[in-house]
């Protein structure tokens, strides 16, 4: 038997369905679970902007898919993740798979749980239903880096949003591996974009971006939170916190990434 040298992976960004290196040409060292040191793309604010543009372009198409179709695509993520489970942290991967399955089933139920036909005092048909808020920025929890990310990402996708993720800075490898799962799971390019790098550098740009509608601050370090929330006010962003905790699994988390629209129409002849 000949010894084979292992082929190392280059951990790149995930933007618009592609895997580019950071436009800045930077990378930073990260210690992998096996103790080896690998280099991970160190995203720049330009990468964040590119990711937002990709997310915005993909958003109408993702939201326009039928809820049934979106549900099947999210379920497909679970299928592909199941097949690649050895790539992911052993303690988190089962939970992550189960979470995708759980949220996949919500796509065609959330409107029924949260919508209403309103009994207004007049001759009007009046109906309220949740819809996507648009482009969501997510600061993924530092740890657990896979389950934490999936717990925030999946509920945002259910309602038809597209997402720009700032991955766990200390443990970004599962996020990049997850990008490979998403890229092979029928999730259209641009629906999820994943940036690795330094949160302190990138968060203000993501939070202040005028084409981002909502920012999830679950993984924002405490010392950056006030700054991020101030930046978010620039375009009156919805600042989202997990309903109960970072590892929530709840329809209320889906709804925090949604807007309720009410439509009136007269009833008569």
């Amino acid at each position: 038997m000949t010894e084979h040298l292992p082929v190392r992976k280059t951990y790149k960004l995930y933007i618009g369905g592609q895997f580019p290196r950071s436009e800045s040409g930077r990378s930073y060292p990260v210690t992998a679970p096996d103790g080896t040191v690998v280099r991970v793309a160190e995203g720049s604010r330009k990468d964040v902007r590119d990711a937002v543009r990709a997310a915005r372009s993909a958003q109408p198409g993702w939201a326009a898919k039928t809820a049934y179709n979106r549900g099947q695509i999210l379920y497909r993520v679970a299928e592909v993740l199941e097949g690649r489970r050895s790539q992911f942290p052993a303690g988190e991967v089962q939970g992550a798979i189960d979470r995708w399955v759980w949220y996949a089933g919500w796509t065609d139920k959330i409107q029924q749980v949260s919508g209403s036909l309103n009994p207004v005092a007049g001759p009007y048909w009046n109906v309220t239903a949740p819809e996507a808020v648009g482009v969501v920025g997510i600061a993924a929890p530092e740890s657990p880096s896979l389950l934490g990310l999936v717990s925030r990402l999946a509920p945002a996708l259910v309602g038809g949003n597209t997402v720009v993720v700032l991955a766990s800075e200390a443990s970004p490898l599962p996020a990049v591996d997850l990008a490979e799962v998403l890229a092979t799971s029928d999730v259209p390019g641009g629906v999820v974009n994943i940036i690795t790098g330094h949160k302190a550098e990138l968060l203000p740009w993501l939070a202040g971006h005028f084409d981002v509608d909502s920012i999830d601050v679950t993984g924002v370090p405490d010392d950056l939170l006030a700054d991020v929330e101030r930046e978010a006010a620039a375009n009156v962003k919805r600042v989202v916190r997990p309903e109960q905790g970072p590892l929530d699994q709840s329809p209320h988390d889906i709804l925090r990434f949604m807007e309720h629209k009410t439509v009136w129409h007269p009833v008569g002849s």
Binding site: N118, T128, V236, K261
Partner: peptide
């Protein structure tokens, strides 16, 4: 938009949710 009035406008009712998208 958070509220869409079709073939009517400026209708309000306590049972009907009201509020904005975006910078509204």
């Amino acid at each position: 938009a958070g509220v869409v009035w079709s073939n009517t406008f400026n209708q309000f009712d306590p049972s009907s949710p009201f509020g904005g998208f975006k910078e509204s």
